[in-house]
Simulated assay, not measured.
Amino acid sequence: MSFLKLSIFLVALLLSACGSTTKELTEGEKKAELYYSHGTKLLIEKHYTEALDALGKAYALTPNDARILNNLGMTYYFKGKMELAEQHLKRSLELDAKNSDAKNNLASLFYTQGRMEEAKKIYKEILEDLVYEHQYRTYYNLALISLQQKQSAEAISYLEKSLKERSDYCSAFFKLGEIYREKHSFATALENFKEASKGECYNDPAPLYEQGITLTMMRKNDLAKEKFNELFERFSQTAYAPLATLQLKKLEGNSDENVASQDIKTNMINPKTAKQNQIDDEVDLELYESPQF
Rank of each mutant, 00 (worst) to 15 (best):
M1G: 09
S7C: 09
L10P: 00
V11G: 01
V11R: 15
A12L: 15
L15E: 12
T22N: 09
L55Y: 14
P63K: 01
T75H: 09
E83M: 05
L89Q: 04
R91F: 12
N104L: 15
G114F: 09
G114K: 08
R115W: 15
E117A: 12
E118C: 01
A119H: 15
K120M: 02
Y123K: 03
L127N: 01
Q135W: 02
L142Y: 07
S146W: 07
S146N: 14
A153F: 11
A153H: 13
E154W: 01
S157F: 15
K161W: 12
K161G: 04
S167H: 05
S167V: 10
Y169D: 03
C170P: 09
A172V: 14
F173L: 11
K175A: 09
G177I: 03
E178F: 15
Y180V: 02
E182P: 01
E182C: 02
S185I: 06
F186M: 07
E191L: 08
F193P: 11
K194A: 08
E195S: 12
K198E: 11
N203E: 13
N203C: 00
A206K: 07
I213G: 00
T214L: 04
T216M: 05
K225M: 13
E230Q: 11
E230C: 04
R234Y: 05
F235M: 04
Q237P: 00
T238Y: 13
A244F: 06
S255D: 04
V259N: 00
V259E: 02
S261F: 06
K265W: 08
I269G: 02
E282G: 10
D284I: 12
L285Q: 13
Y288A: 15
P291D: 14
P291E: 14
